[in-house]
């Protein structure tokens, strides 16, 4: 049974990786990619465009999850979003600012910003103070990020990462500043609060679609297609297990 679990797990991971690479092949992704319209994504793209045109600040907050914790996937999405936002706003007068509640995330956010400027051949525009650790505990992080929202006068606040109920204070501050807020969290509590308090919210796995909707690259689109395939596999397995349980057949 131990061998079976190991083999099934490995096959699942290797198969998923292979499928992602397959979806990224130029032949497979021929033709125009069309995404399901999500109002929050459309509003975000518009807000980013307006911020670049107006020369206003974009703020990306990537949460308080450590990159070494099991909830780090949302932080990875936050970093992808930050990279894309930095690329899009290179021509803007005011560069984007990133905040986080973990030391490793703040270093990665600085590195992400630096890479975006270096790839665009404008490394001199990079400012390490634009990737900040605003607090090392959840409450300190929120308190520090509140200052950034008020002082930097960002026109768009993207809260993409792991947040608890305290994210409600950030959405409130953003609303007071008249800024657009998009919230996306992997935590159920965070999602519930963001649904009630943020202007736009991404629910469930929509969080992981964010880089693809911002046209971050081919691999993000391939990743999204893989997610769709895996979702159908899970749906099929749940239905199969339900039917087998109904028939009284135990597979475990």
């Amino acid at each position: 049974m131990i061998w079976l679990e190991t083999i099934v797990g490995l096959v699942f991971v290797v198969g998923s990786a292979g499928l992602m690479l397959f979806f990224a092949l130029p032949r497979v992704r021929q033709g125009r990619v069309t995404f399901r319209p999500i109002a929050a994504m459309q509003r975000l793209r518009r807000a980013i465009g307006l911020a670049v045109e107006d020369g206003t600040r974009l703020h990306v907050s990537i949460g308080k999850s450590s990159i070494f914790s099991p909830t780090n996937a949302s932080a990875l999405v936050g970093l992808s979003t930050l990279e894309r936002v930095a690329q899009l706003s290179l021509v803007s007068d005011r560069p984007p600012v990133a905040t986080s509640g973990d030391g490793s995330l703040s270093i990665l956010s600085q590195d992400t910003l630096r890479a975006a400027y270096r790839i665009a051949n404008v490394p001199e525009l990079y400012d390490p103070d634009r990737g900040r650790l605003t607090g090392a505990t959840p409450n300190a992080y929120i308190a520090g990020t509140l200052l950034v929202i008020f002082d930097e006068r960002a026109s768009t606040n993207m809260l993409v990462g792991n947040f608890g109920a305290e994210v409600g204070l950030l959405t409130e501050a953003s609303e007071r500043q008249g800024a657009f807020t998009l919230g996306a969290s992997d935590s159920l509590t965070g999602q519930a609060v963001l649904f009630a308090a943020a202007e736009e919210t991404l629910i469930g796995e929509e969080l992981f679609a964010l880089p693809a909707y911002l046209q971050s690259g081919v691999i993000h689109q391939a990743s999204l297609r893989l997610q769709d395939v895996l979702r159908w596999v899970v749906v099929g397995l749940i239905l199969l297990a339900a039917v087998l349980a109904f028939l009284g057949i135990s597979i475990l």
Partner: peptide, 16 residues
């Protein structure tokens, strides 16, 4: 249901 979606998204993010 939401957590299953998050888990699948986390898997693809890790694979990337």
């Amino acid at each position: 249901g939401i957590l299953l979606g998050i888990a699948l998204g986390s898997l693809t993010a890790g694979l990337r």
